[in-house]
């Protein structure tokens, strides 16, 4: 009975929405745990965006954090010259999406893993640029005391209401992803992921699909980056460096790429780790590394991909062509 209810995506989404809103409410007495929950919700959004690209399109963009950073710096810059956050946020996110499309161009020529390596270098360039253009970004010093978004009436968005906004964003993000994946666009993306030459001969415009995926995925990165910024109150190039990209990607791989809920679970499990292990700094990195190795050795398709679907290997999660095709 419960199985059947949970089988439909609507009820899964409803359950997720319930949890996403309930957790900040339950934790509202402790701003520290509420803060961790808020950061986790931003990561749910990011992981869903990364999932569209990595899970459904088969592209592994390690410049994801850099794109989020572009939106973040733009929003901070625009609000500092007097724009409202609510105007700056869509502008920043859209600009990040456009940059994401441009940076996705190599993916049209490079297949699978070659694009991953290329994106690693792109991310490095973005980080170098954040450090180098001191006048725009304040270099590696970072920007402190970022003002909170103001609400109509002059009050600022903070505390529980901010957490709930983040919860709403995460829910909307997952909802949009479900709609996209279930649409014709989603099926075309999977076709591209499985074999883009075949997809091309079937009349699917591979270029258009990939660039659209980059636009949407980068939009997730950008919106997440815009809301993350005032929430934390501080950004620097290291807030958006390659390690952050790798972390978001790991959440997708860990949870199960190409499934809706895998990356969400990955984000929920991994995003709080650095905060909860704060007292165990001696072993934190080693534990994290062992966790990664454990998953890839024991659950190569991720938690959801490995546990839930073990009986019958799903064609969705065996993308044999990723990577080996560049010659």
């Amino acid at each position: 009975m419960i199985d059947r209810i949970l089988a439909s995506r609507q009820s899964q989404l409803a359950l997720f929405a319930l949890l996403a809103f309930a957790v900040p409410l339950l934790l509202s007495g402790n701003r520290y745990f509420a803060f961790i929950a808020g950061i986790t919700l931003v990561h749910v959004l990011w992981a869903s965006g990364m999932n569209l690209l990595y899970g459904y399109t088969g592209l592994m963009p390690l410049m994801f954090a850099g794109i989020a950073g572009i939106s973040s710096y733009l929003v901070v810059g625009l609000t500092s010259i007097g724009w409202s956050f609510w105007l700056a946020m869509p502008v920043g996110a859209l600009a990040a999406s456009l940059v994401g499309v441009v940076l996705g161009l190599p993916a049209l020529r490079l297949k699978g893993f070659y694009f991953t390596l290329c994106s690693l270098v792109i991310q490095t360039v973005i980080t170098l640029a954040f450090v180098y253009f001191v006048n725009l970004t304040n270099g590696d010093t970072g920007i402190s005391q970022i003002p909170l978004p103001t609400l109509p009436g002059g009050a600022s968005l903070h505390g529980l209401p901010y957490d709930l906004v983040l919860a709403a964003l995460a829910v909307i993000g997952v909802f949009v992803l479900i709609r996209l994946v279930d649409s014709g666009f989603g099926r075309r993306l999977i076709a591209v992921r499985e074999d883009d030459e075949l997809a091309e001969t079937l009349g699917i415009g591979v270029t258009r699909q990939k660039l659209t995926a980059f636009f949407v995925g980068s939009l997730y990165a950008g919106i997440g980056g815009a809301f993350y910024t005032p929430y934390v109150g501080f950004i620097s190039p290291r807030s958006f460096d390659v390690l952050i990209s790798l972390n978001v990607w790991l959440m997708v791989a860990f949870g199960g790429r190409g499934t809706i809920w895998g990356p969400v679970i990955g984000a929920v499990l991994l995003a709080p780790v650095p905060f909860l292990l704060q007292d165990y700094y001696m072993i934190k990195d080693v534990v994290y590394g062992l966790l990664i190795i454990g998953v890839i050795v024991l659950l190569p398709a991720g938690i959801v991909g490995g546990l839930v679907r073990r009986p019958k290997p799903d064609p969705e999660i065996v993308p044999a062509t990723v990577g080996e095709g560049a010659r």
Binding site: R31, Y32, F234, Q278
Partner: peptide
């Protein structure tokens, strides 16, 4: 508390110490 030389972690740790 360790901040991992990461500003975001430093803020989180500050919040942890302040609140907890």
């Amino acid at each position: 508390i360790d901040n991992q030389t990461q500003p975001a972690q430093a803020v989180a740790a500050a919040r942890n110490l302040d609140v907890q």
